[in-house]
């Protein structure tokens, strides 16, 4: 397996506040990775930096590309569609994606939309939070790229839809692509993960194989994740 993502010595501050410090992270291709951390720990920031819609010092390489515009053609990041007015019909947004991304696979999108029960004749304003999230995920997964970044994909989603989304991730993930899923609630996705990456104290706390945690420590992922915070309290 080759490295799909390489982050080296990444430092990022926003409005005089340090958000990420000395972040180093390497991910292999073909994995499903859980990016864990408290709210505001910097999960979204890390994803935005990898994609290139925010800037930091340090080096980021995705599938061999380090220039921002090239990197963008290898990463599919969840776009929350803020640029579109609420009156926009979903099929127009699909057209937008189809035009703007060479790697957008319409057939795959239609399958996903069908599977997730998305009605494309609706307007953006007619979507519930969960349905909008499903639409965004379908768009994100329909690009054919090496790296997918899903930022809190289960936010605002009921348990039935969550199952559908998890299944669509399993079903439609290209074999060699890596998917990073951020979540602050681990147990809903833990069976899906190859590895976990924990962001804590402004940096990568650990990057471990999920089954190895279970095997070596006899712990479930959530307990392990919580133990990181307890240990932190002891040190204080």
């Amino acid at each position: 397996m080759s490295d799909i993502l390489k982050v080296e010595n990444l430092n990022y501050s926003h409005r005089l506040k340090k958000i990420l410090q000395d972040v180093n992270l390497t991910l292999e291709s073909g994995k499903i990775v859980g990016l864990l951390g408290e709210n505001g720990a910097g999960k979204t920031t890390l994803m935005r930096l990898i994609t290139g819609v925010a800037h930091a010092t340090g080096d980021i390489t995705v599938a061999g590309a380090s220039r921002i515009d090239e990197r963008k053609s290898h990463v599919s990041y969840m776009d929350h569609l803020g640029a579109f007015s609420l009156g926009t019909h979903l099929d127009r947004i699909v057209k937008f994606y189809q035009t703007v991304y060479e790697d957008f696979d319409v057939d795959r999108f239609n399958e996903l939309a069908d599977f997730l029960n998305i009605d494309l004749s609706l307007k953006l304003s007619a979507l519930s939070k969960g349905n909008k999230q499903k639409f965004v995920i379908a768009l994100t997964l329909s690009r054919q790229v090496e790296l997918y970044l899903l930022d809190e994909p289960f936010d605002g989603i009921d348990s039935m839809s969550r199952k559908d989304i998890i299944n669509s991730i399993i079903k439609w993930k290209p074999e060699n692509a890596t998917i990073v899923i951020s979540d602050h609630y681990v147990s809903e996705i833990s069976s899906l993960l190859d590895e976990i990456v924990v962001i804590k104290d402004e940096t990568i706390n650990c990057n471990l194989d999920a089954d190895k945690i279970r095997e070596d420590k006899g712990m479930d992922i959530e307990d392990f994740y919580e133990s990181l915070y307890e240990r932190g309290h002891d040190n204080d």
Partner: peptide, 16 residues
């Protein structure tokens, strides 16, 4: 102006 700061546009792989 809004085009410069919106993800929908800025995620597109194109040079600045």
């Amino acid at each position: 102006e809004s085009i410069y700061t919106r993800d929908s546009y800025r995620l597109v792989p194109i040079s600045d």
